[in-house]
Design a protein around this nucleic acid. Structure first.
Lengths: 343, 343
DNA sequence: TTGTACGCGTTATCAC
DNA sequence: GTGATAACGCGTACAA
């Protein structure tokens, strides 16, 4: 079954006009008589004519669609970002094509080759946790595809970037824990290589320094796959809590890990916050409904999507290439609830 | 900035061949000499040639992309469905364009006109809660656009449909509550007009009947907007609990409402399940982490997405129109946790 | 004011 | 075995 639409040619034949006349009439050209315009428009309206966007794309060499690559749309943080992206893109007449990498490098490369072959006009991407080789992105960037990175950016590709102030977010969370009397604060972070992990770790370390608490390497742990599979997280947590001097608080570096760690504590019958405090990055809408209500660092995801899209459309629609790029930093917000306050 | 790719013409010029020869060489036609093929292929490889899908679409009158309309991707149920859709679509070389209606009729109509104008080959849709007039869908259907409905289907449009066995799901949940000693079980349902609400309500009523408990209209409530805004839900809950004979259990008709109702109980300091039991439809990955861990009716979302996509691609790729349509029903699973068990 | 011809990238058809 | 041409739907420079 194929879905066939009416074309300019159909209208022209039906009305005994040429296609160019019809085309111009529909575009309200001043060189067409009012009467002809009226006839054409009425016929087009009646038959619900819509210009074929594919033909237009071919002609204009642009598809009016932008590609988005995130790890997972089922993650609140990313679905909120996508809402932000759409809010701008649709208003400006751009189509959004979403792909998921599921944190896999292989899948990301595949997604990208797919999107590129779909002739997108630009790309918004938050790279997968696994990705350490950026050649696939560099090659697209070199070919001139406008790219804006958000959240998980690639340092050595020169383009617009929209990030969260991970360092300050982590700093505030750590200070908050210390103010509430926690002494041995562990950090469970996503992949060590990631830009984000670095920022969060720096904030954490700075908070310790500023409060004259010595760093303890034994309290710093990484999940290569960002806790996507619970087993990885469980192993890390087991090793963390099998130490003699156990942590009294955990700071989790991502939404998935925050939930995973809470699940771990439940399974071990560890009471939060009495036995152990928990603070984590999360954009979950339901953090207040958890047991206990979770103190989170919430990121302005919607804003991030909006900003990244604005920058991308600016690049796409620019007449000439601009060599100065923005590095836009958005603040994260600490939302204090039960999980971090000693009773 | 525009991103320009290499074309067949470029290859032809560079190699001193005609475009048709290059085209045939790339498609491994037997009428091209092995040598020419080799030269062409190597050049194409080296310059990373990719056929322009837009030109192909124009020629083939198909875009190899399918449109998806859901209310909200931030909802686990729908994001899991989308994962199912992608798992099939990408394998078969189809692109997925996702739109959100945010439960708004107006937005749905807009999304659809947008998708149709993007010349999608087919449509997967779960209609918005607000939608009661289906002319926009009928018109597309009449024009021959292949459509498969999932979850929230439209009864009087004749095409494939993939649904959950809402009735049995609701029946099992209600029976479970009764077995646990709850007597006055209220149901808070999504929009009364919806197909789904009817199924869930029927299951609920049948469970009461089978156990000789009389129906009580005062225990049956609706949220027109499916609890998208908390105020609506709050009003409904207030009226439900301002009655003399209060319910001792609530059965919630959607993910959003399940979470909203739990939030309501917390705000009113009502203990679940001691003061009031709660069971609801939900596909949240974190229902076990809530306070209390939530008994839910979980839907096979991933499967649903897969099945709907398979049916759609079958329609799209069928040579002639098939007039017999499937009405595929998937089972829902009751996952029992604390929120429904009296201590 | 309207029509003709061309090009966007590709492939199918026909010619050589 | 290879090349020329037409066609997909559209907009526009040029011609009338």
């Amino acid at each position: 079954m194929r879905f066939e639409a009416i074309t300019i040619k159909d209208i022209a034949t039906a009305l005994g006009l040429s296609t160019s006349t019809v085309s111009r009439a529909l575009r309200d050209s001043h060189e067409i008589s009012v009467e002809t315009k009226k006839i054409v428009r009425e016929y087009a309206e009646e038959h619900n004519y819509r210009p074929n966007p594919i033909a237009l794309s071919l002609k204009e060499k642009r598809s009016r669609s932008i590609g988005v690559v995130v790890c997972e749309i089922a993650n609140s943080f990313f679905s909120q970002i996508i809402n932000g992206i759409e809010s701008i893109a649709y208003d400006r007449g751009y189509n959004v094509i979403i792909s998921q990498s599921h944190e896999s490098y292989k899948r990301e490369v595949l997604d990208l080759s797919y999107l590129a072959s779909r002739s997108i006009d630009g790309l918004l991407i938050s790279v997968a946790m696994e990705t350490t080789n950026f050649d696939h992105l560099k090659s697209l960037h070199d070919k001139g595809l406008p790219i804006v990175f958000f959240d998980r950016v690639v340092d050595d590709i020169d383009t617009h970037k929209v990030i969260i102030d991970n360092s300050t977010g982590a700093y505030n969370a750590t200070v908050h824990l210390m103010k509430n009397g926690f002494k041995r604060i562990a950090i469970v972070s996503i992949s060590e290589h990631s830009f984000i992990a670095q920022g969060r770790l720096n904030g954490y370390k700075k908070a310790l320094q500023d409060n004259n608490i010595p760093e303890d390497e034994k309290l710093i742990r990484y999940c290569e796959h960002g806790g996507q599979n619970y087993e990885e997280l469980e192993q890390v947590m087991d090793s963390l809590f099998s130490q003699k001097k156990k942590p009294d608080a955990v700071f989790a570096g991502s939404d998935t890990m925050t939930m995973g760690i809470l699940r771990y504590f439940k399974s071990k019958k560890m009471k939060v916050p009495d036995d152990i405090a928990l603070v984590g990055f999360s954009n979950s809408e339901n953090a207040d409904l958890l047991q206990p209500a979770l103190t989170v660092i919430k990121q302005p995801a919607f804003e991030m999507g909006k900003k990244a899209t604005e920058l991308l459309l600016k690049m796409i629609e620019a007449k000439r290439q601009d060599k100065t790029f923005e590095n836009y930093v958005l603040p994260a917000e600490l939302v204090i609830r039960e999980s971090s306050e000693k009773k």
